[in-house]
Design a protein around this nucleic acid. Structure first.
Lengths: 356, 356
DNA sequence: CTGTTAGCGCGTTCAC
DNA sequence: GTGAACGCGCTAACAG
């Protein structure tokens, strides 16, 4: 089947132009439509192209010549499967695709898994968006900036040379924590997102602040600490229900058992709710559970999860728009988003009838 | 912040070579590592590069010269958000990324939404994978083939010039239908995936066979007809729980009410289960529900859905591997996958105690 | 409206 | 192990 594809000599613009009896530049204009070409000439060029089986200008050559490839790289830290499993990432990507797509760009999916930065250097793209950033993005950023590419980072520490899309992770987490405190909770535990690229399921280490490279996880932890100077917790292996279940078991086996669990994502929260169910705890009487993200309710059914709703798609749109602006040589407007506390039915006042 | 990125003249390989006191070709070899260069020379070149702030060879130029950009296009029909919402697509993409990524390729996300084929012609890529194909892919395929790009299609009709990854949709659907018939069901209704790119929620038209452009939907419908020559149904607006709920309400309001519903995806099946719940029906006594796909159980909780489990990730791997082979000029091994019936607890024998 | 003239930045022959 | 030359396929100026 690959005959046509493999067959050596594809026709070139020059060949088409010759057959049509026009110059190469005229033929080029006939295809790009970006210049004044008479209808008759265009016809002739197109006819010649069809006759020769010419499929239009080679994008690679056009990219070189124009200095633009129309491609925006989206760099994720995880494997793609992990990234896609989180509805937040998907919503964000969708926002990016919306904005960038409208501007005629396509998205190139890249991962920096395992320190493999080679793709960042060799992939043809005009700009890059870093998502799910760690605080150790410096190396990636350096590579990209060295190539002269505009870089947009979502939820990252402010950094020179990078346009950052912010989210008030710390403030929002603190707000959630205050909600729990106002309900009388004293012993809260956190189920955290991975602190580092590939950390295993484990109790939250005391020195989390210095050991966390995930900006998002770190800020959310700080937010909790702003309200509860002391808290226990566990670290999950990813933002999945299973990871939440595992970590949930961990925190529920602490003694004294916490009366509330702050999960750093809704997926994790669902896992915690499952763990609670396993342990025969009733929600919210025996245990309050707080999530983060605000994923679609159908996924957290049958619960009505108390959570911090973040505008994920808007974040993506902002990132996409920022890239478009940067590519146009303009300075994008600063963009920072805020989360909103949704009080559902998984948090309630602390009760006294606790078994040990 | 965009100073560095925007600042006009980026250093070129030639400049680096000059500073290092070597020829451009030597400098090129020093970077690509694909030729004999003495360690000392390489050092000098790298030092010069660092001094000049040179970020390595420009991928666009390299792509033109080599005739390869290292990019594989993944073409989806929907908006990205819709595509990502279905775990099957995600699993498949993951498989593709695995194989293609291992071969050093990155994935370029493309959509052919709204007949916008322009991206297919202008995106720099070495090959394309078509997923979620309609029977109307001919136009897209033609464009791609004209460019000389190898094309792999997942679950599409066999077509010259396209390497197809198959799935036994028809046989599997028939197997599921037979399962229902063996349980005594006579009146079954289908909740179908969209028959065409943007069809609304509606009763299944009698002439579905001629009006369906989605290859997958069509084959699955045929499989059902192989067992139940007559059946009713509804068409959903997408592969989502909400769409399933809506379509589910439709089929449950048919009279006489079907005793079993065959959903064309698990997400749709979950929607149908919700609709059944709404209607106060108990599963599987009042209604049997059959899904398709075999998404992770946690998503169909608390039910144990009877469904046809398909090897989505394997499909993706096969597609990725096929692309890699085609790019290497080899003929890929034919790849066709089969689904397996998982009998859960959402299907059961038909009972006589049916209210109208 | 159309043709001419130059490259875009690099990888690859070849010789030496 | 290294250098010289050439051209990948196209497009942006300008001139006519």
């Amino acid at each position: 089947m690959s005959d046509t594809a493999t067959s050596g000599a594809r026709p070139t613009l020059a060949a088409v132009a010759e057959l049509a009896g026009v110059s190469a530049s005229t033929a080029s204009l006939a295809f790009s439509g970006s210049g004044p070409v008479s209808a008759a000439t265009r016809e002739r060029v197109l006819a010649a192209a069809e006759q020769l089986g010419y499929g239009g200008p080679d994008p690679r050559a056009a990219a070189l010549r124009r200095g633009r490839s129309g491609v925006v790289g989206v760099v994720m830290e995880d494997r793609l499967a992990d990234a896609f499993r989180d509805p937040m990432n998907v919503a964000m990507l969708d926002g990016v695709a919306d904005e960038a797509g409208a501007a005629g760009a396509s998205l190139l999916l890249l991962t920096e898994s395992g320190g493999e930065l080679s793709h960042l250097t060799s992939a043809p793209m005009d700009a890059a968006i870093l998502v799910g950033c760690s605080t150790r993005i410096d190396e990636s950023v350096d590579r990209l900036r060295l190539r002269g590419l505009p870089v947009v980072a979502v939820e990252a520490e402010e950094r020179a040379g990078v346009f950052t899309i912010g989210l008030d992770n710390r403030r929002a987490s603190a707000e959630g924590a205050r909600h729990l405190r106002s309900l009388g909770h004293e012993r809260v535990a956190v189920v955290a997102l991975p602190l580092q690229p590939s950390s295993g399921s484990a109790p939250l280490p005391a020195d989390w602040e210095t050991r966390t490279t995930s900006h998002t996880a770190l800020e959310r932890l700080r937010g909790v600490r702003d309200v509860y100077p002391e808290f226990d917790g566990a670290v999950a292996t990813g933002s999945t229900v299973d990871a939440g279940l595992e970590a949930g078991r961990l925190v529920l086996s602490l003694s004294p058992r916490p009366t509330a669990v702050i999960a750093q994502s809704d997926l994790l929260a669902v896992g915690v709710l499952r763990a609670a169910e396993e342990a025969g705890l009733s929600i919210p009487d025996d245990l309050s559970v707080l999530g983060f993200d605000g994923i679609r309710p159908e996924l957290v059914r049958p619960w009505d999860l108390t959570t911090l709703v973040q505008p994920a798609q808007e974040k993506g749109r902002a990132a996409g728009a920022a890239v478009v602006r940067l590519l146009a040589g303009e300075e994008p407007a600063a963009a920072s988003f805020t989360c909103q506390l949704h009080v559902g039915r998984t948090t309630g006042p602390v009760t006294r009838s606790l078994p040990s």
